[in-house]
Amino acid sequence: MNVVICEDEVEQREFLQKTISEYATFHEPSIKIALSTSDPNRVLAYLKDQRADCYFLDIELGSAITGMELARIIREHDPLAQIIFISMHADRLKLTFKYKLAALDFIVKSAGYDQLTIEIEEALKEAFNIYRKIGNQSEVSYIQIKIGERIKNVRYDDIYYFETSTQEHKLILHEVSGVYEFYGRLKTYEEIDRRFYRCHKSFLINLDYVREIDTKERKLTLANDHICLISSRKVKELQKKLSI
């Protein structure tokens, strides 16, 4: 995993470099610092023909380009890069960084070196986990929902059911910790996993969560007490699928 650092204060930059390379030698030798600079233009030059996987950016760069602007350009080049911001100020624009620039983390400098080391290491650890996940292509078991620039992974295991909204082309996804709305068609999701079953034109359910079915009323109750309809043609097939 290649790391790029852009920080204009020399002392801070050296500290970052030291912390990251120490973490690399002890935990993940594949982490390498590809570039460490005070000048955002050098990062831009680097971006022209190369990619890094993780960027540590100071928000208040003493330059025409701010860290935010730099992050935006990095995002344009590489939507999957992990960006970690470093700032003097407390978490004032936390949500903006998360949703607009899909920042992984936000580290506040004034916290003191001990605290800083912990935070940098944690951010690095998470960045590496995500990096590894992207590489591990065989495990496809979640749906990605884009909220702003942020990507939320919803695991198949957590999904109760999909339903169509009253509005055309809008779907509602019910999962263990929440409800998501997005544009799409149920058909797109029918085939993604064997446990999903289209029991009605408006419902795509997770068979693992079916608690009971009422064949007379053609309704089924899921583990979260929500009720879905079953179309008459599907009753038999559904019963068969559930009895296995």
Binding site: V140, Y142, I143, Q144, K146, Y183, G184, T188, Y189, I192
Partner: peptide
């Protein structure tokens, strides 16, 4: 454009 992608 199906901006909401599934992992595949």
């Amino acid at each position: 454009n199906d901006q909401y992608l599934i992992m595949t």
